[in-house]
Structure formats: C-alpha cells, structure tokens
Amino acid sequence: MSGTNAGISVDCPATISSECWKVPGYRYVTYDNSGATPCGTSTINGAAAGVCDRPNVRVTSWIINGVNVISDPFTDGWNECGQPFLADLAATLNTWDPFAGGWVAAVSDTCAVHLRSRALPPTGTEYGVLTATDVDTGQTLTFTPDDTVVPDQFYRRVTEIDCAGVTSTHWLDANGNPTAAPNPARIVECSVQVTPGARTVPTERVRPRIKRYTGAVASPNLDTLAVVQSITLTVLAGAVRVQAAGTGATSTTPPTAYGDDVTVPAGVTLSWAVDGDSYDLALDGSLLFTGTSAAADFLVHWTEHTYQDAD
C-alpha cells in the first residue's frame, strides 16, 4: 500500500477557551416608618401611615422566607420618631433575625431616615412583613420592606488563536457584545458563590451642612432628622437659647435623664461631637437652638451620615 500523508488543517481563527466571569451583585432590604415610600410601607390598621412614638407594642410576627420567626409574641418599645424610633426598631430586628441581616438606621435623600440591612446576595433570604399591636391604642402596625437589587453582571472571556498561531483574548458582555475588560479585582468565576463584595455594611459618608437663622426662630431638632456626629453653634448677634435633653449612661451608671437650658450671648461658639471611636455613631438626645429676640443672628453647622451603595 502506498500513498502520501497530507497535513490536517483547522479553521482559523479558532476559539481555545470561553470562560464565564461575573461581578457579584448585592441587595439591600429596607423598612420605613413614614407611610408608603420607596424604602418600604408602614400601615396603621391596614392604611398606609407614618408610625412613631410607640413605647408599648406587642410584636406578633415577622415573616422571613414565608415563616413567622417570632416564636412567642413579646412586648417592646419604639420611642420618639425619625432616627431614635428606627434605632429601637433595628434593635428588635437584630434580636430576632435568624439570618443576621445587620439592621441599621440609615439616611438617604430618597427616604430620609429609614432602616436598612447589610449587603445581601441578589437573591436568597426573603424578608417580609413585620406586625405588631400597640398595647395602648389597640392599633395594628405593619412594616412591609422594599428591596434594592444590583444583579450579578456576567461576562465571557474568549481566547482565540489565529492562522499564524498567535493567541488573543477579548471580552463579551451578557448579550455577547464586545466590551472592555472588567476590573480584575471585582470579578470571580461564575461558579463561585460569594458573599456580596459590596460591603458588610453600607459605605458610610459624612456630609457637611450649615444654616443661618435670624430673629426669634428655632432650629429643628437635628436628632430626629439625621444621624449627626457633630454640631456647632455660632452666635453672631443677640442671644440664643440652647436646650439639651435626653438620657445618658456610662459603664458604671444607669441612664439618667437630663434637661439643660441656657442662654448664650453674641460672640460665643459652642460645639458638640462624638469622640470618633467605633462605638459612637451619632450624638443622642435633643438639641434645640432658639433666637431670643428679633436681633438674634446665629449659625448652626453640623456633619451627618449619608449612605451610598456606589463603589
């Protein structure tokens, strides 16, 4: 038998490998006590309404993954409004959440003060309605959450070899269109299941604020509007009444009520601030500034936490 051997040719360019990669997504679950908002809905006897100042409530159910995780109804208290109310509610959720959602009172331009979880996977634990009864009024209170979801972003890395034997790599998006290579520090293989890389808690930012008041006017109680780290009062003219009230405790003493009330003359600057360690997120208690006459002129500037999900 005789014959000739011919070389075997392959089509070129040819794909050597096609790999699936992703930027892991994340999700935040939010509850709000301000009625129907983009961060959740609160109701009183089934009608959307703001809920606050409830010192005596009986928590009856919290539905997570379709199951009531409140094994035995219990009495709790959610005091005041705004950030203090939600801090109390966050403590309730963190006590009873079997999945450690990491609930904190957060501030955003969309919903002002509301309650938010730590970063969660885009799919998974389904948080549902929390129900309680106001023991004093008999009203039924409910809180229904809202989800903010950033899905996984999928990419395909394709390696090819051309007819000259040279290899090259390019990236495709989820629709198969050419795209720029994603940040290598953010991607994992599609088969890898990871805790969201977004953060264990929302990124914390501090925003500076300042307002000027003239005449016999009062500033709002900043404690109910934002998570405040520092406040400074500067009296330019006239006099300003300063009222500070709340309760405080130390490692060796129980909470003690206080109510300070002084008048501050022109030319004086006063400041209040947390000490910057990891235990003190915000100032606590009320702090009110009121001009005592038409001649009063004063500045209030403060720093407050905002929360952003952007990388």
Score class of each variant (00 low, 15 high):
A295G: 02
T144C: 09
T306R: 08
A49Y: 08
S61H: 08
G40P: 01
V300H: 13
V206H: 11
Q139H: 15
V188P: 03
R54I: 03
T41P: 00
T306E: 04
D162T: 09
V268T: 14
A237P: 01
V107E: 11
C111H: 11
G248P: 00
G82K: 03
P202F: 04
D162R: 08
L233K: 01
Q229S: 15
F99Y: 15
G35E: 00
T125D: 02
T200E: 04
A226D: 15
L225H: 11
S293G: 09
G124H: 06
T140A: 02
T131N: 03
V29H: 01
V201F: 09
W302I: 05
S251C: 10
P73M: 10
V51T: 15
E19F: 07
T159D: 02
G50K: 07
A294I: 13
D134A: 12
G248S: 15
S117E: 03
S42V: 12
L233S: 04
V158T: 08
V149H: 10
D72G: 06
V57T: 08
D147E: 09
L287E: 03
S251M: 15
D72L: 07
S219K: 02
D97Q: 01
T250P: 00
G215V: 07
L141I: 11
T37N: 00
N79D: 11
V228H: 09
A216H: 07
A36H: 06
C39S: 14
S18F: 03
T269A: 15
A132L: 13
I231F: 02
G238V: 02
A181C: 01
L120S: 09
P220R: 00
F85S: 12
T252H: 01
L270A: 15
S9R: 13
L288P: 01
P208A: 13
A237N: 14
G176W: 09
T252V: 15
R116H: 00
G124K: 01
R209F: 13
T148D: 09
T195I: 14
L283A: 12
A249D: 14
C39V: 05
A237R: 15
W103M: 05
D260S: 09
C39H: 04
Q308G: 05
A294L: 10
N68D: 06
T247Q: 07
V242D: 13
V67K: 13
T92I: 12
H170N: 08
D88S: 14
A112S: 11
V206A: 09
L115F: 01
P182Q: 04
T306I: 14
G285E: 04
T133F: 09
C81Y: 07
N183M: 05
D261Q: 10
R58E: 11
T169A: 11
T144Y: 05
V206F: 11
P122W: 06
